Amino acid sequence: MNKVTTEILSRPDLLTDCERSVRYHQARARSFNTRYLLIQFIVFALAGANVVHLIEAWLPEWSAAFLWAAVSVLALCGLVFNPVEKHTLHKSLYHGFTVLHGKIMANPNADDKMLTEWTKEIHSLYADEPPVYRALLAHCDNQVAIALGADKGFFVKLKWHQLLFRNFWPFQGAEFLNQNQVHQQ
């Protein structure tokens, strides 16, 4: 999520990056889990309706064909988009950032060697990340700023559609400027 640097990150920077990444990957994992459960529900509901049709024959012939096609399409969506694998990846990254955050919090008097190790570890976690959903990242930055009691100038004002689709659309071309950056322009 952050650009790779060769310098050693400070303890506060490491904590902030971990906190943001924990929130980001927790939100992504929840989103994929919800999608998977929704697909599962629809498939089971349609399959159940089709079984009822076969047993009682209360739907016309075209409805049964439609139900079978819908079940097939929904099952194919589950295979193509694979929300379970993405959920597992984000849950694993969430766990990695949480563990690193705990290590950093447990050692308030870190020396340069520890900071170097933690910097390597955070960059290793960054390397495993898929492309970033920028609106979700900005939302997580806002949450971290609130948790840290940061100045209101660090908050990014997100539009309603960015908040609504932050887990579905990457918003790669959009600018996410915090209030300080907006006032500088």
Rank of each mutant, 00 (worst) to 15 (best):
S124E: 14
A106V: 09
H123K: 06
H123V: 00
F66Q: 02
V144D: 03
K113F: 13
A138N: 02
A150G: 01
T34C: 03
L137K: 11
W62S: 04
V71D: 03
T98P: 02
A29W: 05
V144H: 04
V22I: 11
A135E: 06
G78V: 07
V71W: 01
V99I: 12
V132W: 00
W68K: 10
G173I: 10
V156M: 04
L164N: 02
I55H: 11
P60K: 00
R35Y: 10
G102L: 07
N180M: 09
L15C: 06
N82R: 08
H101N: 12
M1Y: 08
P108A: 11
S10D: 13
L93P: 01
L177G: 07
E19C: 00
F32K: 09
L137N: 15
D111F: 04
A64C: 04
A29K: 03
V51N: 00
N50Y: 02
K86C: 04
R11H: 09
S21C: 15
T88I: 09
A47D: 02
Y24E: 07
T116H: 11
Y126F: 14
G102Q: 04
T6V: 01
W169M: 14
R11Y: 06
A110E: 09
D112N: 15
H161M: 08
M114V: 05
V99R: 06
V43Y: 00
M105A: 09
C18E: 02
I8R: 14
M105I: 11
Q172W: 14
L100G: 05
A174P: 01
A57R: 15
F97M: 06
N109V: 06
L164W: 14
D112Y: 03
N109T: 05
Q40M: 11
L125N: 03
R35M: 13
T119N: 11
L125G: 05
P12M: 02
L38G: 07
N167M: 02
A70H: 08
E19N: 00
R23I: 13
R134E: 04
D128T: 08
